[in-house]
Nucleic acid binder design. Structure first.
Lengths: 149, 149
DNA sequence: AATTTTAATGAGAATGAATCTCAAATGCAT
DNA sequence: ATGCATTTGAGATTCATTCTCATTAAAATT
């Protein structure tokens, strides 16, 4: 938590942005709990302690955290953008169950090497991987056998 | 175009859905041009020839094409869902330029093998890969050097 | 520490993609 | 051709996200 705050502070300073109370509250809330979260969740979480942080400010601040490299936009779920921590977290990919919505994470160091090669072929400079697959998790595979006919 | 239509027809029949004029028009428009398209593009394209196909019907029909396995939802761009053909197209991944928005496609057969392994570890059954990365394309890397101070 | 300057905030209005509603139209089995 | 369930078009609705703008707060200057 310490380091995130310092990085954030430095980032804001480098952009001539002010370190305000709402910006600090939001950043701390983001790193308090979740790995995956959406703006609504975050708003509810913050509201429990701070009645006067508005949705608008959260919508304005989250992109700053992205730009600072502390979080990234990872998925969409129920028509909402989902974010996740990046600082201090290994790259990973998401297996998303089409049936129950469960998100399974899995490391991908070997995969990255191959993708880096493909990128090199295209002279593309990767900033951020975005890897995943949809399908059926273990449990829902079983359910399907039972449910179908 | 012939085969797509047959597959679609069979799909509709299997679901007890009717092969209506709008459903045919929309399906043909989808396979007329694009690889990547959003609903708005599709609507405009269709409107040129058929003044009486409504947006609502397009929004209703595109998910049918997805369910039939002919297209899939691939990306989001400018807050809009983007679709792409799957039938007759190799799996590929997307490199998306953060600066100019260009989408570069690249095959990924080797990558898929690795990801299949990871999925097997989690007992996850993959229906559809979703692979990509964000960064800078060749041209925008050059521009960056020029633009940044 | 008080003042000035400038950016950031909160609250609610606005936007816009996607979904829903329902009367009218159409496909299809008979 | 007839009847009936399904689908459609048009516009209303929803809901996540963005915008507006008067007020407030941060930091720069005195």
């Amino acid at each position: 938590m310490k380091k995130e705050r310092d990085l954030y502070r430095d980032f804001l300073k480098s952009k001539d942005l002010k370190m305000t109370k709402p910006r600090l509250i939001i950043m701390e809330a983001v790193f308090e709990n979740h790995e995956h979260f959406n703006i609504d969740d975050l708003y509810e979480q913050i509201r429990k302690k701070h009645k006067n942080v508005s949705r608008a400010t959260i919508y304005r601040t989250v992109p700053l955290l992205v730009e600072a490299g502390l979080i990234k936009q990872s998925l969409r779920c129920e028509s909402k953008d989902i974010y996740e921590h990046t600082y201090g977290h290994e790259n990973h990919l998401h297996f998303i169950c089409d049936n129950c919505g469960k998100i399974i994470e899995s490391g991908f160091s070997d995969v990255a090497i191959l993708i880096d090669l493909l990128a090199k072929n295209e002279n593309f400079e990767i900033k951020e991987y975005n890897l995943g697959a949809r399908g059926l998790c273990k449990d829902c595979q079983k359910k399907r056998i039972i449910n179908e006919k």
